[in-house]
Each structure stands twice: as C-alpha cells, then as structure tokens.
Design a protein around this nucleic acid. Sequence first.
DNA 1: TCTTCAAATTGGTCTTACCAGTTTGGACAG
DNA 2: CTGTCCAAACTGGTAAGACCAATTTGAAGA
Lengths: 254, 254
Amino acid sequence: MNVLSTSVNECFSGRVANTTRSAEIAKVLLVEILRGQFRVGERLPSERDLAARFRSGRGAVREALSQIEQLRLIEINPGGARIKSVRDSSIAVLGPLLALEESPNALLVDQFLETFSVLTQLSGRRAISAMSTDQQHALLKRLEEMTDRFATGELGQDELHAFLESLGEISNNLVVRLIGNDLRTQLFERMIFKGRETTLNKNYHLQLLKGMRDGIQSRDGNLFSKSLEEYFEELRVGVFQLLDSEIVEESKVL
Amino acid sequence: MNVLSTSVNECFSGRVANTTRSAEIAKVLLVEILRGQFRVGERLPSERDLAARFRSGRGAVREALSQIEQLRLIEINPGGARIKSVRDSSIAVLGPLLALEESPNALLVDQFLETFSVLTQLSGRRAISAMSTDQQHALLKRLEEMTDRFATGELGQDELHAFLESLGEISNNLVVRLIGNDLRTQLFERMIFKGRETTLNKNYHLQLLKGMRDGIQSRDGNLFSKSLEEYFEELRVGVFQLLDSEIVEESKVL
DNA sequence: TCTTCAAATTGGTCTTACCAGTTTGGACAG
DNA sequence: CTGTCCAAACTGGTAAGACCAATTTGAAGA
C-alpha cells in the first residue's frame, strides 16, 4: 500500500515530495527489516525484484540498499544482500527504531537518556577544567539569566540544550561531539519529543541550574557532573512514566 | 595519481580489488574533504565532472556521494552538493579522520579513549546491577582465569576486550552497544592499533583485574567503575606518549 | 546598477546492456 | 538412493544514454 501510494504520487504529480526515490525505498525497507520481517542471515530480494516491486529503476534501489548497508543492517555481496542483526548495526538506526511505533519504546528512550547523561557529564567535566576565566564568567552570566527566566516560567528546553551544547563547544572533545551529533540527529531532529513536555517537577530544574552554577563558580567538575547526573536521573523517571502511560492508553484504544 | 592507479587496476586486471568502484571513489573524495581541500559551503564538482575525473559512470559517483552524505559531510541538493563542517558530521568519520596520517592524531585517540572509558564504565555499572548470580559467578571465574594467564604473561588485549564486551551484553543497553559498534568499527576493525602494543606498566592491568573482581564480588558498581576509570586513565597516558613519540620520529625522517 | 529571463547546468530517475562471480538445480556417476 | 559436478540462471557491479524538473548562471534589457 505504502509503495503504491508513493509511486502514484510520483507518476501523477511528478515530484511533490522533497525526498528522493531512493530515500523512500530505503525507509520502507528499513522499517521492514527493523520489524523483523526478515530473519538474520536471510537473503533480501534481488535488486531487480525490489525495483519491480517499488516500480522504480535499479539505480534507486541500489542507492537505497547502499544506505542501509552503511547502517550495517545488511551486507551486500555478489550473490545477494543478507540481513544482519540490529544489535551489530550503527547508532544511526536508533531513530528509525524509535519511530517504529508512534509511541517510542520507553525502555529505549530511557537507555538513550542514560547514555546521553554520561556523555553530557563528560562534556561538562572537560569544559570546566578547560574553560578560560572569560568563558567561566560568560557561562555564569548566562546561567543567571536562565535562572531569572526560569523564575518567570519562560525558560524553554531548547535554551537548556543550547547551554549544554556550548559546554560541548568548550570541552573540545570531537569524539563526544560527533556522537552527540548522531544522537541529536536520531532523536531531536526527528521530533520524537514533539509535544511531549516534561512533566518534571520544577524543583529539579532549579537544582540543576544551581548545581551547574556552583560547579562552574568553584571549577568543581565533580560537583557539576553530579548535578547533571541527578537531573538526568529525574528526567529519566519522568520520561519513562510518560511514555509508559502512553502505551497503556494505546492498548486502551485498541 | 591515486585515481589513475585504481582505474588502471580496473581496466587491465578487471576486478582484482574486492572493493566496489563507488567505495573507492567515496574514499578518495572523503580524504580530500577531510584534508580540507574544499571550504565549508563550497560546491563539489558535479556528478558528471566527477564521473569524468574518475573515469567511471555517474551511477558509481552518485553512490559514493550518497555514502558521504550519510556521514553528513556533504549536503546534496538539486543544483549541487555542498561541503559541510566536519564538526557537524557523523561519528563514522572518526576512522577516516584517524587514518588521514599514518600515525593517528594523538589528541583524537586520547579523546576516543576518554569517551570509550565513560561508556565502558556505564556498561559496567549497569551490568553489575543487572547480573544474575549465575552471571556473577561466571564473570568471577573468568576473571580468575584471566588473572592466572596474566601471571604467566599470556593474557592478550583481545581477551580483555572480550570480557568488557560480555559486560555490555549483560548490561543490556542497546544505545551504548550501538555506539560501541560504531566506535569499534571506526578503530579496532581498521587496525589502527595494529602492532602498537601498550607499553603500559603491568601493574595497572593487575589493578584493573583486581578492581573488577572486587566490584563484581561485592556488587559495587562504583568500585568497578572506578577501577575502569583509573585503568583507562593510565592507558590514555601511555597511548598518548606512544603516538606523540611517533610524530617526533616521523618529523625526524622527514 | 538592478532586474529579468532564457540557456546551460545539475541532480533525480529510468532503461538497456555487459561482465564476472555466485547460486541453483538437474544430470550423471557412484 | 546418494553424492558430485557442471551448466544455466541469477545476482551484484558498472557503464552509457536519455529525459525531466529545478537550480544556477550570465547576458540582455530597463
């Protein structure tokens, strides 16, 4: 069905979509693979068969398969493409994995936040030990402004993200930055958190702001890291409950 | 030069290489981009031009560009492909980045180890809090064997890796696992550490083995994590000095 | 100097055609 | 009936040619 609708869309109105044909094909195949419609080791249909199925040329299919191969979800060899285990794939499958169901897997999001937490902590520790006094003062000033805005209730999540990102800038660890790029691409840019505002107790936000300020002021990486850890801990609990309740509601509807 | 040699190889002996043409092209372009031969925002030559340069078809070039786009190093749009900043790219560029020079960038490897350290610590903490008593005993037994083999000097790095990986198995955090897959793909599988044996003081190995044993035995995640942290700390120092001295020697040769 | 618009260019896609290596299935020998 | 072997069918890799729609470009015009 999915396939037909897109191809019809292509044939009639000619390029309304801003996505390429190969990206469409890759997306469809990706979902099928992640849903487990193929067993590990099983052979994917041949490029020619897939081209026929998607009513497209072999070139488009080849590009799609090449993209999926880069995710290490399949292995293309002369003779055919074979399915590999999701557990051996790339972090780039995280987004599609979370997007499989309309309500992201709570466990997976929890694991993401846990991982994001330790990477952010690392970033923070490095930033604190690397920042110049100028940067220190700039950060403190920014934190103060954020605290003020928080008091009036106009502190957005985005601003907190931006602050943490500027820490990454200072910390100057390219590896963490690149991983962060991937994680961000997988989650935030896909708007997986769209419309889901944290029902987090405001107290934890304030505690985080305070902890970060103290950590920066005294150049205490451990203190800073600890406050981040506690914040993420609470965030995880909140998000998990939120997503868990969504599942319950979903099953109610069904 | 590079281009000619490969194409000659193709034309004459017809497919000796086990790599595809598109992968070759992608590799060459990737190196050129990472070496900064294009400015950010600059337009890449057109697919037709590249095809002419590499003496190949447009299809191969398209596949190559598509792969590079997945690394978020370029952005392909109708009108042309434009260079993006390495700092915004994917973790998958880490390997090519380290392979740019024959001696990997010491600072970058250090950052990698630091990141790998915190992820491993997270893995360990999770594993310890999640392991069954059976798994606990199995791990302890394995550690004992490793300690024995270490005494006779026949404990390999690979075995330590395998042990840490089995911790990841127990910890059951898919996100960390996927990131680990990428990091491993970028470094270990490319044999960036080939022939470079850690000149690490044996004492630190023993301390790690002991710390891990105690941590597992008492189910103390923090203790376990701490011993890993200290081990990686020493490893980083050792590796950094090793790579740093290589650079000195390189400049001597030149 | 700025605007406008047509021509050239570019990416996206499909079709056709080979090549070389893999897979498959049936013929053949045991 | 079973195992071996080989040729036909199939598969991925690659190239060339062609068309479309959108962008880019540059020159003509205001």
